[in-house]
Every structure is written in structure tokens, then in C-alpha cells.
């Protein structure tokens, strides 16, 4: 069974009383362990699609099955737990919480699970070392550069060893060299930890380096 099955998903926005159909009956399967890139014009609906995959946004119609389970049939607590345990998000901006240090930010998903603090911090420290930020654990996000913050965000998405990693233009705000570093990390994560990943990107060369490539256009997803 596919890890992720998307069945006939519709999503529209309403702007000034007019309907914009962003997703028009998207159906798709993603297997366990795949590394998938998603490209498309700006405004094509890539972020929308990723949000629906990650249960951050509800579709108007259609279903998303994770491991055979209909995610939108779950109640609030189950969905929250699902996001917490099985999905890691990385966005275009780092979205770290400004009041907390890098270490606390990375450990946050574990703290949400009410794991004990020392254990969570130990593993978070390990992850920060791995993304090359062992010397920045006590810095607040405001004191980190864009690339560093994005690496902290990546570490945060991995702290609970999620089954699925969703990355929305994680390198969009970074210079090419730093961006390549992040992509390398994503590939490592996929290979070493066996985490299934869907990466939205504008960078065609980066997209081409991924084993499976998808294109979103005119409300539908096609293999590219």
C-alpha cells in the first residue's frame, strides 16, 4: 500500500466573490521512502497542495489517506497528534519561535508530546550538531543567519523522526550555495533515515536531481 494516497482532491479560494479553483481533482500515490520534487509556476497551487497533504488545510472535497487511514476523518486531537508525530514541515521562511533558543525550538515537537525535557534536549543537541550548528544551540532565532535558521528548522522537523517530510521551497530565501547545502541535507535525511520527502522547489536543476519529479499546472499534478 502506498504511504500517501491522494484521491480526487478539490480546493478553491474565494477572492472578491470570485472562485479560484486551485486544485481540481488531484489524485496521486506516493510510496514509502520516495524523494519527490514538485515544481510549478508561482501561484500554481504548490503550497496549497502541500498544506492539504500535511492536514494544515482542509480540501473542499476528496480524501487523503495516510497508510490507508483517511486523515480528514480524524478529530482535532488525532489530527494534531498526526501532524506532531508523522509529519515534518519545512517552509520558505524558517518560522522558528522567536522567544526560544535554537535548542528549545528544535525540541519543541517533543515538548508538545510532553516528553521529558532533558531527553528531548539531548536528541535536539545531537540533531543540531548534525546540521552543523552545534555551537549555536543557545542562540535565539534573531541572532541566526537565514541559512542557519533554516537548518534549525530542518532539525526541528526531524526531531520526532517523522514518516513524511514536507518542504515548501526551503531554499527560496537563500543564496544558491547555502541552498545546495540544505538540499544535500534533505537527500541525506531521505537516504539515511528513510524519511519520505516531498520538496517544492523553483530550482529546476535541484528538481532534476530528485528521483521522482512532479509538476503542478492547471489544477492537476503530472509526472515530469
Amino acid at each position: 500500500m502506498a504511504l500517501l494516497s491522494i484521491r480526487n482532491v478539490f480546493k478553491s479560494y474565494f477572492l472578491h466573490g470570485k472562485r479560484i479553483d486551485v486544485l481540481r481533482g488531484v489524485s496521486l500515490d506516493i510510496e514509502r521512502g520516495e524523494l519527490v520534487s514538485l515544481v510549478g509556476a508561482s501561484g500554481a497551487g504548490k503550497s496549497t497542495f502541500l498544506h492539504v497533504l500535511g492536514t494544515l488545510d482542509a480540501p473542499a472535497a476528496g480524501e487523503v489517506f495516510f497508510d490507508g487511514r483517511a486523515v480528514f476523518s480524524m478529530n482535532d486531537a488525532e489530527i494534531a497528534e498526526f501532524r506532531n508525530k508523522t509529519i515534518g514541515f519545512v517552509f520558505q521562511s524558517h518560522y522558528l519561535l522567536p522567544e526560544f533558543t535554537a535548542l528549545e525550538n528544535v525540541a519543541m515537537p517533543a515538548l508538545i508530546q510532553r516528553q521529558d525535557r532533558t531527553g528531548a534536549y539531548t536528541y535536539a543537541r545531537e540533531l543540531l550538531e548534525r546540521v552543523g550548528l552545534g555551537h549555536r544551540v543557545d542562540h535565539r532565532p534573531g541572532e541566526l543567519s537565514g541559512g542557519e535558521a533554516q537548518r534549525v528548522a530542518l532539525a526541528r522537523s526531524l526531531v520526532l523522526k517523522p514518516a513524511l517530510l514536507l518542504a515548501d521551497e526551503p531554499t527560496g530565501n537563500l543564496d544558491p550555495a547555502t541552498g545546495e547545502g540544505i538540499h544535500q541535507l534533505l537527500r541525506d535525511v531521505n537516504r539515511d533515515l528513510g524519511i519520505t520527502a516531498v520538496v517544492v522547489t523553483h530550482n529546476e536543476t535541484l528538481a532534476r536531481s530528485m528521483p521522482r519529479r512532479l509538476r503542478l499546472a492547471a489544477g492537476g499534478v503530472t509526472e515530469a
Binding site: L56, A77, I79, A80, R83, M108
Partner: peptide, 16 residues
């Protein structure tokens, strides 16, 4: 607002 969204994405339920 932004932090609330992030916390929700990280798995904090509405009650939290």
C-alpha cells in the same frame, strides 16, 4: 498569529 500557526503545524491541538 504566526507563532500560533507554527505551533499548530507542529501538532498543538486547539485546546493547547
Amino acid at each position: 498569529r504566526k507563532e500560533i500557526s507554527v505551533l499548530k503545524a507542529l501538532g498543538v491541538p486547539d485546546g493547547g
